[in-house]
């Protein structure tokens, strides 16, 4: 009961904070009335920013109206530079999904091998230590040069940035499976393959999933920047395109949606993590 009341109170505080933020935003960007006297024709030319003291920054009502417009027609396609937000987000999610899944396919089996072999672990450590801190965007020119396809290059960048947290967490998870669980499998004469699937994988799964959750977050951070570079489609490209159009409203909407999608991706992985976590 105490827990529910805490949740209700927290929800109330969240709503109050949101309302305060929107209110301040609204007040800060509203028109302040006529500031200069000029001929109506000239005033029309100058726009509300010059004549009414209106901020160039859109207010919450403008953003809300525009967002509603976008949400009503998320999948329209009027050519390369005018696509619905749903299409743009779809491109970004597809790139992140492809790059991320490829990274899962490489990182988890490789992490298993490295984690189970102290020799490999030691031998590969210097490479991982050097490769890990490289900004994924630094790979972009090399990717463009070798792959010669901007869309695939973006996927490669996602692959390379999401592989490290998964790889390192898998190695750590596999290497730190409790000795006693391994010993149980050994005394039961369980073979290496069966041991890997019945003892090591379930024991390391929470750590591996934590790595996957970190990776999806990084991949979603990187896709925006990658798409700004490669252009064409995607939410990152949309942001840059709207900046070039000087449509701050659309930029704000894109920022909001990037946040929401990122949160959803994180929540999905969090749910998977909870599914494989075991209480001790």
């Amino acid at each position: 009961m105490n827990n529910t009341s805490l949740r209700v109170r927290a929800g109330l505080v969240s709503i109050v904070l949101l309302a305060a933020f929107l209110g301040i935003w609204h007040i800060a960007t509203r028109s302040t009335g006529t500031t200069t006297t000029m001929s109506p024709e000239y005033a029309k030319l100058m726009g509300l920013t010059a004549t009414q003291g209106k901020s160039a920054m859109p207010g919450p009502l403008d953003v809300g109206a525009k967002l509603w417009e976008h949400l009503k027609r998320p999948f329209y396609d009027n050519g390369p530079n005018d696509k619905g937000l749903g299409i743009q987000l779809g491109y970004s999610i597809a790139r992140v999904g492809t790059g991320y899944l490829l990274a899962v396919l490489v990182a988890i089996p490789l992490g298993f091998l490295i984690g189970m072999s102290p020799l490999l672990s030691k031998a590969l450590d210097p490479f991982i230590q050097v490769l890990k801190p490289i900004s994924p965007l630094a790979w972009m020119p090399l990717a463009l040069y070798t792959i010669k396809d901007s869309s695939v290059s973006a996927i490669f960048v996602i692959f390379i940035c999401s592989i490290w947290p998964m790889l390192l967490n898998t190695v750590f998870g596999v290497a730190s499976v409790r000795k006693e669980w391994i010993n149980v499998a050994r005394t039961l004469e369980v073979g290496t393959i069966r041991r890997a699937f019945t003892v090591i994988l379930p024991a390391a799964a929470p750590t591996i999933l934590t790595g996957m959750r970190i990776s999806i977050g990084i991949a979603w951070l990187v896709i925006v920047a990658a798409e700004m570079l490669v252009g064409g489609t995607g939410i990152g490209y949309f942001v840059w395109n709207e900046w070039n159009n000087l449509s701050i409203t659309n930029v704000i909407i894109a920022i909001l949606l990037i946040g929401v999608v990122g949160m959803l991706l994180d929540q999905i992985l969090a749910r998977f993590t909870r599914m494989v976590t075991f209480p001790e």
């Binding site: 669980w181 010993n183 149980v184 005394t187 039961l188 004469e189 075991f278 209480p279 001790e280």
Partner: peptide, 18 residues
Amino acid sequence: GTSLDRAVIFQSHALLPW
């Protein structure tokens, strides 16, 4: 090496928690 002929009862019970 180990064998199924020799069962071990561990001090820490060593059950698989999942």
